[in-house]
Write a protein that binds this DNA or RNA. Structure first.
Length: 418
DNA sequence: TCTGGGGTCCTAGGACCC
DNA sequence: TCTGGGGTCCTAGGACCC
């Protein structure tokens, strides 16, 4: 059962380049929210040894000296480009799993008899032509091996972006060239632990005894090792399961010091969480609010959260905000400079299976109609066209994004001009 | 001045039940 | 001296992913 992993190269940077060919040859980086850390790098930027996740302010001089193009994150653009890529991929197989914003697994079972490398090249060519985004394709018997094949496809100049490992005599060779820390499912902690026990490559891990793996890395680790041996243990998920938690949190553009500002921010995050909840057609029974100071600053620290139970599971923003504001008031303390806050919705059920309450006084039909009218308008006219006053107008705490490119594909006013 | 955001799964241990 | 056995449910914490 061959599986392909298609992964966009340097995805955020590639999106920026599609609409701005001038930066096609320059080193480019994209920053996280608040223009904080490096989250995407062009190959030229990687060649300058700019590390993933590095705070941008620490390498300001280097960025200037090397004439690196720096962009804020533009999620509206990346989300839309991602959809275009996924729509394109859907032409090539009936069975695929969108794994993240820039990756998809594709079941190629029906194509086992054809030349998979050739098919991979066609996928790559088509995505490039239709969207402008360069992708790499790795093909193998399991997801974990497809990940490794993809990594080789990206790195080796010889294979030109497509690498098929199915039934390959090179599997052992490929595994021996893969650092154990690069295996899908091995994070920093496990990598350190494994190296300490002399397991340095994917091949070493592949040859480790089941019982040892199970004991030290649980059933999850065992699945991973089996996958390395070519035994599929992680299946394709064509429809994403409903979310069990919905979290919206942000760092503030500047420290928040007053309860009013904090409540505005929490109300705004709750609004977003409610929107997510409704696109899932779900309702939540619990809301958690949290806030924290800046742990990198040598200042008094404070971090707290509180959990509020809703009397009836709901998807109504108004109701969620009321509880969120109450929670905010409970845990807010004056005298601190807050850096970040957020809300987490949980105990989530399908909206149609809400457990009703005999003493419930709310008019649920009316609020349902209100929410769907609100969502309609905001989808059609742009986010926050209508918003709750509780989320504030000035929004002094807003996330910084000083170098954001236009939202070329999702706002009429920002369409590229030719 | 300046350090991201959003998820999932598994396990151990406690509470509780008979 | 000596204090059962087996099960479920829930939560916190730890690991991972992008």
């Amino acid at each position: 059962m061959p599986i392909a992993l298609v992964d966009c190269n340097n995805f955020y940077v590639s999106c920026e380049r599609v609409f701005n060919p001038k930066i096609a040859r320059r080193p480019v980086v994209v920053l996280s929210n608040n223009d904080g850390c490096i989250v995407s790098r062009s190959n030229e930027a990687k060649a300058l040894s700019i590390q993933m996740g590095l705070p941008a302010f620490k390498i300001e001089r280097l960025l200037r000296r090397e004439n690196v193009a720096v962009r804020s994150s533009n999620y509206a653009l990346y989300g839309d480009m991602s959809q275009r890529v996924m729509n394109t991929l859907a032409h090539f197989t009936p069975d695929m799993e969108v794994y993240s914003i820039d990756e998809a697994f594709m079941d190629l079972s029906g194509f086992a008899r054809s030349n998979l490398t050739e098919y991979g090249r066609e996928i790559r060519r088509t995505v490039g032509q239709w969207t402008g985004i360069p992708v790499s394709v790795g093909i193998a018997e399991t997801k974990t091996l497809a990940k490794i094949a993809n990594r080789i496809a990206k790195r080796s100049a010889k294979v030109d972006g497509v690498f098929d490992l199915t039934g390959s005599p090179y599997r052992e060779k490929a595994l021996s060239l893969t650092d154990v820390g690069s295996v899908w499912g091995v994070g920093r902690r496990y990598a350190k632990f494994l190296r300490k026990h002399g397991i340095k490559t994917a091949l070493d891990l592949c040859r480790t005894e089941d019982s040892w793996v199970k004991k030290h890395m649980s059933i999850v680790g065992l699945r991973m090792v089996r996958e390395l041996r070519g035994i599929p243990c992680i299946s394709m998920e064509s429809a994403p399961p409903a979310k069990k938690e919905i979290c919206v949190s942000r760092s503030f553009g500047k420290p928040v010091r007053t309860l009013l500002e904090m409540q505005e921010a929490v109300a705004a995050y709750t609004t977003r969480a409610g929107e997510k909840l409704r696109t899932e057609h779900s309702a939540a029974g619990v809301i958690m609010v949290f806030m924290m100071t800046n742990r990198f600053k040598d200042e008094p620290q404070y971090s707290r959260s509180t959990v509020l139970e809703l009397p009836v599971q709901t998807d109504c923003t108004q109701e969620l905000i009321r509880y969120a504001l109450r929670g905010t008031e409970m845990i807010f303390r004056k005298g601190y400079g807050f850096k970040k806050a957020g809300v987490v919705l949980s105990r989530i059920v399908p909206a149609g299976q809400v457990q009703t309450d005999l003493f419930d006084t709310r008019n649920r039909t009316a609020s349902k109609e209100l929410m769907s009218a609100l969502d309609d308008i905001n989808v059609r006219m742009g986010r926050d066209t209508l918003k709750y006053a509780a989320s504030g107008l000035a929004r002094s705490w807003k996330t910084r994004a000083e170098k954001r490119s236009p939202r070329y594909t999702t706002r009429w006013a920002e369409l590229p001009k030719v």
